[in-house]
Design a protein around this nucleic acid. Structure first.
Length: 283
DNA sequence: CCGCTGGCCTGCGAGC
DNA sequence: TGCTCGCAGGCCAGCG
């Protein structure tokens, strides 16, 4: 379940592909079951002979940049993953639902695998054009910034448009902070000792300050552990798993005792999302 | 512009 | 053991 820390971890490994020349970007027979992938191979044929220049991240989107325009906007969705292989013969053994094959002149090659098919591949004329794409243009603070702008976070949270939102819902809204998904939303609120259903306008200065610090702390800690792989579906392009699931305090720990106070962790449904919290530590 | 809802998808595990 | 069914949560089109 790729959130910001997972996507950034994937990006760091994909940087190994920089300066390799594309032989072909191919779409597998499986991908052709889905309309969103039909006709893509022709549009992506222009990348043959192009050298990969960079892989960027905006929120949870990856952007593949080549010598020449256009650029590829790629989202992992829920189950999307990139796997690097040294020979195309490894494809069947190392992937289960391959959709896109980025074949290089020389290995490694990169396979996009996506069982639930929520992943995205779109073409944009330039990086600048990607930045005008509304889901990216509206993005607020990058929660993974090494030097998290706490003052800016407090100012943004004070904006009128956010005052009536519940904090558990708002943390998932990239217009405030980018990179938080359902797992780290819960872990951040536990760290900040704030109940997920609290309305933003009721938060004290101390609470908003601690919340900002908790966002940065949890996301960076998760990134240093290369993300959460608790269900074994999320893997890095190298095949390595993440380790952040080892320190989850509330996510998917319903009815288990809180590490801090022993109360049983509870789950509520908030905006159609499971939200885990400690009823004693968070109020 | 805003916020909310339902759709896209398949694998897995709980419960019968 | 085998079946059904609900859940998992990323974005986003469409609606009011």
């Amino acid at each position: 379940m790729p959130e910001g820390p997972e996507v950034e971890s994937v990006r760091r490994e994909l940087l190994q592909l920089i300066n390799l020349v594309v032989e072909k970007i191919a779409f597998t027979p499986l991908s052709q079951k889905y309309t969103k992938y039909q006709g893509k191979e022709e549009k992506f044929s222009q990348f043959t002979n192009q050298k990969l220049r960079n892989v960027h991240r905006f929120n949870k989107f990856l952007v593949w940049e080549f010598d020449k325009a256009p650029v590829i906007l790629n989202h992992l969705g829920m189950t999307g993953s990139w796997t690097m292989i040294s020979s195309l013969e490894e494809l069947s053994s190392k992937t289960t639902h391959p959709k896109v094959i980025v074949e290089m002149r020389t290995p490694p090659h990169a396979i996009f695998d996506d069982s639930r098919n929520f992943g995205q591949f779109r073409l944009f004329s330039s990086i600048e054009a990607v930045k005008q794409y509304p889901p990216i243009k509206k993005v607020g603070i990058d929660g993974l910034a090494e030097d998290f702008p706490l003052g800016e976070f407090i100012d943004r949270l004070a904006e009128q448009r956010f005052q009536n939102r519940q904090i558990g819902d708002l943390l998932m809204d990239p217009r405030l902070v980018a990179g938080i998904g359902n797992i780290y939303k819960a872990e951040i609120l536990f760290e900040a000792k704030i109940h997920p259903e609290r309305t933003v306008s009721t938060l004290s200065t101390e609470e908003t300050t601690l919340l900002g610090k908790s966002i940065s702390k949890i996301l960076l800690k998760a990134f240093y552990d290369k993300g959460s792989s608790f269900d074994a579906r999320y893997k890095l392009p190298s095949g390595e798993s993440g380790g952040a699931q080892r320190w989850h305090k509330v996510y998917q720990r319903i009815d288990q005792p809180c590490d801090k106070c022993g109360s049983l962790i509870e789950k509520i449904i908030q905006k159609n999302r499971s939200t885990y919290y400690c009823p004693t530590c968070q109020d």
